[in-house]
Computed example of a mutant assay.
Amino acid sequence: MIKSQQGNQVADYSKLMKRQSPESSATIKKQIHKRFQNRQTIRELYQQKAWKTLVKVGSQTKGLYEEYDTIKVQGQVLSVGDSVLINSGDQHDEDYVGTLKQIISIKEPTTAKLICLCRIQWYMRKSEIIKSKPKCSEWISEQELFITNHQEYILAQSIISSCKILSCSEYQELDEIESTIYFNRLEWDLQKKQFGNMDSVQQFCFCFQPVNPDRQYIQCDSCKNWYHFECVGIKNGKYNQKEFHCRKCQ
């Protein structure tokens, strides 16, 4: 016999089995076994941090799984589609960045506690990209992110706050740049460790690099092309003459 926390009788399964046919009794036994097996499985999967499997198990059990459009984390209301900063742990200097793709909760049957998980699409930072492409360090901005096709589940409480991810042109138009404002213009293939759409980005200067908003540029008054100060010999970030002509136009 199974009882509620108040001690009232819920169901006497031994009597129930006697009133059922052999086929229906077997079905009920399987349902009971599955229910209690899932209780243990969800607890174990949580301890193992096996989030993907936990979501799969939870979604297959009626009453344990629910999806949401919004979630409140650290006093902020976040919605599916928002970009967020995620705690990377004590071993990392930079927080992770991702976009919320799904918000779900899974109930742990024994304790009735809710496990809140978020499916995140990840971005890569400059520090991660230059490990594979060290020569790109000069043109990648400190606030630049690279979108990936990699998604995975995380605990909702690991989210720190929301952030903004702009286009490169939107970012360049800003007068003041906050630490939680980033921009994205390129994809990053995690398997091949290369950019996915590099041909779509315009290249500048004699060094033929994409624009880096962190660096200083000067425009030639003749050809209207832009050049790095360093590449045209301008030192200390100063140019006092009224006009500038690149070496091709001089």
Score class of each variant (00 low, 15 high):
residue 100 L to Y: 05
residue 94 E to R: 01
residue 110 T to W: 13
residue 108 E to N: 09
residue 107 K to H: 03
residue 107 K to A: 09
residue 103 I to W: 04
residue 97 V to D: 00
residue 95 D to P: 01
residue 103 I to N: 09
residue 109 P to C: 05
residue 96 Y to E: 05
residue 112 A to V: 12
residue 106 I to P: 07
residue 90 D to P: 11
residue 114 L to H: 13
residue 91 Q to E: 11
residue 110 T to E: 15
residue 88 S to N: 08
residue 108 E to Y: 10
residue 90 D to N: 14
residue 103 I to A: 04
residue 97 V to Q: 00
residue 95 D to R: 00
residue 111 T to C: 07
residue 104 I to G: 02
residue 103 I to R: 06
residue 97 V to N: 00
residue 97 V to R: 00
residue 95 D to Y: 01
residue 96 Y to A: 05
residue 99 T to A: 08
residue 97 V to W: 00
residue 91 Q to I: 05
residue 90 D to M: 11
residue 92 H to Y: 08
residue 89 G to H: 03
residue 113 K to D: 14
residue 100 L to G: 03
residue 102 Q to C: 02
residue 105 S to E: 08
residue 98 G to P: 01
residue 88 S to H: 03
residue 105 S to Q: 06
residue 117 L to C: 06
residue 108 E to G: 10
residue 116 C to Q: 13
residue 93 D to C: 08
residue 106 I to Q: 04
residue 118 C to G: 10
residue 92 H to S: 10
residue 111 T to E: 12
residue 112 A to T: 14
residue 105 S to C: 07
residue 105 S to N: 09
residue 91 Q to S: 14
residue 101 K to M: 10
residue 116 C to R: 15
residue 99 T to N: 11
residue 113 K to H: 13
residue 115 I to Q: 12
residue 95 D to H: 02
residue 116 C to D: 14
residue 97 V to H: 00
residue 89 G to I: 03
residue 113 K to M: 09
residue 89 G to N: 06
residue 101 K to I: 07
residue 103 I to D: 04
residue 95 D to I: 00
residue 103 I to M: 04
residue 110 T to L: 15
residue 116 C to K: 15
residue 118 C to H: 03
residue 94 E to D: 06
residue 115 I to Y: 06
residue 119 R to V: 05
residue 91 Q to F: 07
residue 115 I to K: 04
residue 96 Y to D: 03
